[in-house]
Design a protein around this nucleic acid. Structure first.
Lengths: 222, 222
DNA sequence: CGACTGTCGCCTGTCGACAGTCGTCATAAA
DNA sequence: TTTATGACGACTGTCGACAGGCGACAGTCG
């Protein structure tokens, strides 16, 4: 997680306190520092940050709207609890959106896009070779995130962004389930090849298979 | 009384003031009472509702997170402006998610589900016969909403809910573009038939075609 | 001993006020 | 007349305080 955190903290230079709290809280939830089911108490959080409840409350509300927090009126808000069933449902939607994205990428990709994806695969290989599982997971997410961002569709962006936050949350629990790390990295090469080949159906099929394989790794019962 | 609730104000019996404001504001935006690009001023809204800014601010923040409002820090928040391009991108994602939903419905539908959908088609026919275009649009949205709710997937729910709010927003502008109203209603019968037939691919294909036809009606340039 | 009921404390929901920032408009310089 | 500049006004962002709801616990009744 440190990889993304480093990248984000330098990039994110929000103005308002509420935005900073939002980014901080989101990061702590997705990194697992705040565990699933754990309770969020506005006043305590505000005190620990040395600010008033207002910006904390705003951040919490936004996180709730994004589905990372669940709120019970007049009582408590807690971090979303992922379950194998939810992960399966999440992946089903993920496949639908990402295949749409890759079809668009096949159509509109530029040379530098291919280079970027190539670089991310290399990154994954390096992480795999170093047996750095969290790093590998992060790199894989970065690869897929780059993919759907290339689709340049604001709705894909919004939806995929939401889904990936939930994916990260799901991955905080058991991020060590890979049998052969190198295989995970190599699995992405056919995707790249399919994009370059210019065949949308082939690319979509390859991606769909890849994601489902990934699901199988984490939630075997499917 | 009999049909699905259209008037939110009578149905919604939320607890907190913020929730009520959220529902009210959302309703006014989606109905077109507050126009696209129009500015939202917290203090003015609070005063007109006879409450403080806090719940108004919370509602506005949630709507911003949902993408119906756009916020410029320290200055203003305005209602999202839809464009033909955005509508096309929206529909692309909509097709992806709804085809996923209908595949699930093919697999798990119960007899009462079919009855419900049948009823909604009848509703559409009645609206079409009465040349009630807004009513027809509402009934059609209700049909599709019922469809993806039957998929019983929380992520489909969340994503489709978001997309449909944006669809409603897009439809506030030109909700009168149908050539033959009856055709619109009848178009849904093949969908129902495909669901009953139990062929997921056929159902998905039929739905995809239907949605794209609908898009063509509103945004001809595609 | 177990189920019900009333009280208590913690936390959320709401309020009014203050401070900071951005656009606007008038004014001045070219 | 056109463009730069600076004060003004309006609105958002943040603060501390109060009120009210919900769960927890203890005491009571069966």
């Amino acid at each position: 997680m440190t990889g993304a955190a480093k990248k984000d903290s330098s990039t994110i230079q929000r103005n308002t306190v509420a935005d900073q709290v939002y980014a901080d809280l989101r990061g702590r939830i997705l990194s697992g520092e705040i565990q699933q089911g754990e309770r969020i108490v506005e006043a305590a959080l505000a005190k620990s940050l040395g600010i008033s409840r207002a910006p904390v409350r705003e951040a919490v509300n936004r996180l709730t709207e994004a589905g990372l927090l669940e709120s019970r009126t007049h009582f408590s808000t807690t971090v979303l609890q992922m379950t194998p069933e939810k992960v399966r449902q999440l992946y089903a939607v993920r496949v639908a959106v990402e295949t749409l994205a890759i079809r668009e990428v096949v159509r509109r990709h530029r040379p530098e896009d291919i280079e970027l994806l190539k670089g991310l695969i290399k990154e994954m290989m390096a992480r795999a070779k170093a047996k750095d599982v969290p790093g590998l997971v992060e790199a894989e997410l970065a690869f897929h995130e780059a993919l759907w961002k290339m689709a340049a569709n604001p709705y894909v962006d919004r939806v995929a962004g939401l889904l990936f936050d939930h994916m990260r949350l799901a991955l905080t629990v058991d991020n060590a389930g890979y049998s052969d790390l190198m295989d995970v990295a190599r699995e992405h090469e056919p995707l790249l090849a399919a994009i370059v080949s210019g065949d949308p159906d082939k690319a979509a099929q390859a991606l769909s298979t890849h994601i489902m394989t990934s699901l199988e790794t984490f939630v075997p019962s499917a």
